[in-house]
């Protein structure tokens, strides 16, 4: 099953709709709730990042019998120092973003925490592609 979602830019009020839709789909498919939470949280963090930092983008989701593969593709400036960004608490978010409950420097670490596999491809001014894999039967 292949799913496609557009991720709006700078619209935090509607951010997370793609992740919500994917979570509902996994519930309907009868996937283990622990596995659903891993997929939902890691996708949600990536979606929020695409909205906050990435100027919006898209989500490409593939679900098969044993796993879900989530690709979040954004149009942003890329991540200048990926190693630094993976550290808990490191953030480049503005005060405005923090006032909305995000930008605490936990987004990428949370993706790593919940995903079974995480790959991040990023280049300056070329955007970022986050690929998350969660297996259903591990």
């Amino acid at each position: 099953m292949n799913l496609h979602y557009e991720i709006p830019s700078d619209d935090l009020a509607h951010a997370g709709e793609a992740s919500s839709s994917v979570k509902k789909m996994l519930v309907q498919l009868g996937i283990d709730p622990v596995r659903i939470k891993k997929a939902a949280v890691s996708m949600y963090e990536a979606e929020i990042n695409a909205v906050i930092h990435g100027g919006g983008g898209s989500a490409e989701v593939t679900i098969d019998s044993d796993k879900i593969v989530i690709r979040i593709i954004d149009n942003g400036p890329g991540i200048a120092d990926l190693e630094l960004a993976m550290q808990e608490g490191y953030t480049t978010a503005s005060d405005d973003i923090r006032e909305m409950g995000f930008g605490a420097g936990m987004g990428l670490p949370n993706m790593k925490r919940y995903a079974d596999e995480l790959d991040i491809q990023t280049r300056p001014d070329k955007g970022t592609i986050v690929t998350i894999v969660v297996y259903f039967h591990q």
Binding site: A13, A15, Y44, M100, G101, F102, G105, M106, R113
Partner: peptide
């Protein structure tokens, strides 16, 4: 901070927050 909630919270939890947002 919602990312902290996602990092650390366990099951059957009540969330108390002063943040008013759909997020």
């Amino acid at each position: 901070l919602m990312s902290d909630v996602m990092a650390f919270v366990k099951e059957n939890v009540l969330l108390l927050t002063g943040l008013v947002s759909p997020q």
